[in-house]
Design a protein around this nucleic acid. Structure first.
Lengths: 134, 134
DNA sequence: AAGTTTGTACGAAAAAAGTCGTAGTAAATA
DNA sequence: TATTTACTACGACTTTTTTCGTACAAACTT
C-alpha cells in the first residue's frame, strides 16, 4: 500500500518526464533527455535536475548501482491520470463528469469500436448500480 | 467571429476568475474578490491586478462607464473547456479520449439519468458517422 | 468643505517552475 | 598514465504567475 499523502500534482514538465518513464521503463537521464529533445530542446542538466527534484518529491525512484542512475516512475500512470482528472473536472467542468464526457466525445472523432467499448462500460455501470440498490 | 489567435490557456487563477464571471455575469472587482474569498483569502488589489492582466490578454472585456468597472468574460465557458480539454487529453491521456471517458465514468458515481444522456449521445454520434459514410 | 471610503493604476516583491553553468569524479581511451 | 568523455551534485539565474503596497482620484458623509 503506497503511503502517498499528497494529492499528486506533477507540473507540466514533470508529467512529460513521467510519460517518458511510463513508456520506456527505467531510464537513464540521458535517455529521458533524448526523448525530451524530440519534442523540445532541453539541456542535459535541466533534465537531470528535474529528475533529482522528482526524486525528492518521490515521484520517481532511482537505482544508483551503476554510475548512470536508472530512474523509474514511482507513481502509476492510472493513479496519476485519475488524480489529475479529478482536479481537472473540478476546476474546468465544475465537477460535472457528464459534461466533460459529452465534450470529449462530441468534439473528437471517436471510432465506432471505441463507441462500442463505451457502450459496454455504460451497461456495466448500470448493472452495478442496480445491483447495489438491493 | 472572434479573432482569437492564441490557443487559450488561462492559468489556474485566471480560470477561477473566469468561472466566477461565467456564473455571475458582468461583475465588479469587488464582487469577484468576494467570491474568491469564499474559497481562498485574496487581497482586493490582487484580484484587481489579475483582472487587469486578463483584460490585456483579452480574456475579459470591461465597461468603464461607471467608476467601478464591470468586467465580463470575453471567452465562453464552452470554448475554454474545449481548449483545455484538448490540451489535457494530449498531456495526460496521450490523446485517447476513450481512456479519459472510461476513467471519468468509471471512477465517479454517475446517475442513471446521466448515463442515459450519454447513451443518447452515443446513438447520435453513431447515426452521424454512418450518415456521413454515404 | 474636510474627511473617510471606495475605486483604479502600476511597480515591484514573493513564489513557483524551469533552465543552466560550473565543479568534481569515475570511466573509457589514446 | 595522460587526456578526454560521461556522469552527478548543486547553486544560482530566468521566466512565469501571484500577491501586494503605495499613490492618487472620484464620490460619498458629516
Amino acid at each position: 500500500m503506497p503511503e502517498n499523502k499528497a494529492p499528486l500534482k506533477p507540473t507540466d514538465t514533470e508529467l512529460e518526464i513521467l510519460q517518458i518513464l511510463w513508456q520506456n521503463g527505467p531510464s537513464t537521464v540521458r535517455l529521458v533527455n533524448e526523448e525530451q529533445n524530440k519534442t523540445k530542446e532541453t539541456g542535459y542538466t535541466t533534465t537531470l535536475k528535474l529528475l533529482q527534484i522528482m526524486f525528492e518529491k518521490n515521484l520517481v525512484t532511482r537505482d544508483e548501482e551503476s554510475r548512470s542512475h536508472l530512474y523509474q516512475a514511482a507513481v502509476t500512470e492510472e493513479e496519476t491520470q485519475q488524480s489529475l482528472l479529478n482536479r481537472f473536472l473540478d476546476t474546468t467542468f465544475r465537477g460535472s463528469a457528464m459534461k466533460l464526457v459529452m465534450q470529449a466525445l462530441g468534439n473528437r472523432k471517436t471510432s465506432p469500436e471505441e463507441l462500442d467499448q463505451i457502450r459496454h462500460l455504460l451497461k456495466k455501470l448500470e448493472d452495478e448500480s442496480s445491483a447495489s440498490d438491493s
